[in-house]
Design a protein around this nucleic acid. Structure first.
Lengths: 187, 187
DNA sequence: GCTTTTCATTCACATTTGTGAAGAAATAAA
DNA sequence: TTTATTTCTTCACAAATGTGAATGAAAAGC
C-alpha cells in the first residue's frame, strides 16, 4: 500500500483512521506481464489501484486490438460500463509489465461507503476527471491529425513511449503501426 | 418544469417534497436561436436542464468551430472542466433552436446537496454516464471510418439529422461538410 | 550462446478524407 | 414576393492514412 495510502491522503485528505479502514478492504494481487485484470465478455466486479506496473484497455473490433487507454502507478483500473450497469465488459484490461495491484470488490465498496461517506466524493471526482480526460481524447481524435496527436502524447505523457509498445500506442492514436513509424521518421 | 419534474422522479425517484425543494432553486430562462448558454473564455457557474430546444457544444481550433456534443430536451448542459476546476471554459454552448432552460447556480447546488443527499448520487451518475458516452465517441473516432460513424449516428440518434445543420454534424463526426455530403450521396 | 518470436521500419500502391471553387437549394429577412 | 444569407452539393485535385509485403532489430525462450 506504499502508493495507495499517500494517494488517499494527499488527494482526498482521508484521515489515518479512514485510510486504515479502507486499506483492510483491499486484497493485493500480482499480475505477470500479459495477464488480465479483466477480459472482454466477463463482468467487472471490482476496482483496483495500481501500485506497480502498467495496463492497457483494449477492445476487439473487426478482429483487431483497439487500445483506448493506458494506466500506470497511482491510477485506478475498472470498467465503468460493466461495473455500473452489470453488463459484460467490451474491454480487456491487460498488464503490459509485471504488476502489483490492490483490488476491492464492488460489494465492499458499497458497504464501506456507508461508514465513510467521503468515498462517495472520491467516486464522483474520479468519474468527473475520467469524463474530462475522455473528452480531450475525443477532441484530439476528431480535430487533430495523426501527427499532431502523436506530438501531444509525446509532450504530455512521454513515459508512455518508454513503457508501452509502439503498436499499442499507434492503436491508441487511432492509426496503424506503419503510420506511426512514418510520422516518427519525419522528425 | 414540465420535463424536469418527471425526469427527477422517474430517473432518480426523488420524493414530491424533494422535487419541490429542488424546483424552487431553478430559474427559468429563454434563449433564442444562436444565443449562448456559455461562451468560451467565460467561467461556467451553473448547470441547466433543457425543457425545450437544442444546443451544441463547440470549441474553436485553428479558427474553426469544432462541435463535440449536442444536447436536447431532458439533457443537462454545463461545462465540467470550467465548473469544477474554476477555469475559463474552452467550449461554447449555443442554442440551435429557440430554447427554454432551467438554470441552477453552482452555489445553490452545494447548499441543496446538504439538505438532499441524494443529489450527490445524481451528480455521480451523470458524470459516470457522460464518461461512458464520451468513451464511445472516442472509440468511434479512433476505430471507425467516417462513413461508419455517420451510419452509427443515423441509427442511434436520427433526430440529430432533423434538428442540427449538417455542417455541425460533420464537425461532430470529425470530417468536413463536403465529406459528409459525399458519404450521403453514396447511399 | 543460439533460435524463435515479437516488434519496428520501409516501400509502392490503394483508399479515404481534405481543399477550394462553383453553383444549387433552402431559409431568413426585407 | 423578392432579395439576401446560409447551407448543401458536386467536382477535380491534393494530402493523409491504410495495406500488404519484405526486411531488420530487439526481446524472449531454450
Amino acid at each position: 500500500m506504499n502508493k495507495l495510502k499517500p494517494y488517499l491522503q494527499s488527494n482526498f485528505s482521508f484521515s489515518e483512521n479512514e485510510i486504515e479502514k479502507m486499506a483492510s478492504c483491499f486484497v493485493s494481487k500480482s499480475l505477470k506481464k500479459k495477464e488480465y485484470f479483466l477480459r472482454a465478455g466477463h463482468y467487472c466486479k471490482n476496482v483496483a489501484f495500481i501500485e506497480k506496473g502498467c495496463f492497457i484497455y483494449y477492445e476487439i473490433i473487426a478482429g483487431e486490438e483497439k487500445v483506448c487507454d493506458f494506466a500506470f502507478e497511482n491510477d485506478w483500473i475498472t470498467q465503468y460500463n460493466s461495473l455500473l450497469n452489470n453488463t459484460p465488459s467490451q474491454f480487456n484490461i491487460c498488464a503490459i509489465e509485471n504488476a502489483e495491484i490492490l483490488v476491492m470488490d464492488v460489494s465492499k465498496i458499497a458497504a464501506l461507503s456507508k461508514s465513510i461517506p467521503k468515498i462517495g466524493m472520491l467516486r464522483t471526482e474520479l468519474a468527473e476527471n475520467y469524463f474530462i480526460e475522455s473528452t480531450k481524447r475525443a477532441s484530439q481524435l476528431a480535430n487533430l491529425k495523426a501527427e499532431e496527436r502523436y506530438e501531444t502524447l509525446l509532450n504530455e505523457k512521454p513515459e508512455t513511449f518508454q513503457r508501452i509498445p509502439q503498436y499499442h500506442i499507434a492503436s491508441y492514436l487511432g492509426i496503424k503501426p506503419q503510420s506511426l513509424s512514418r510520422i516518427r521518421a519525419k522528425k
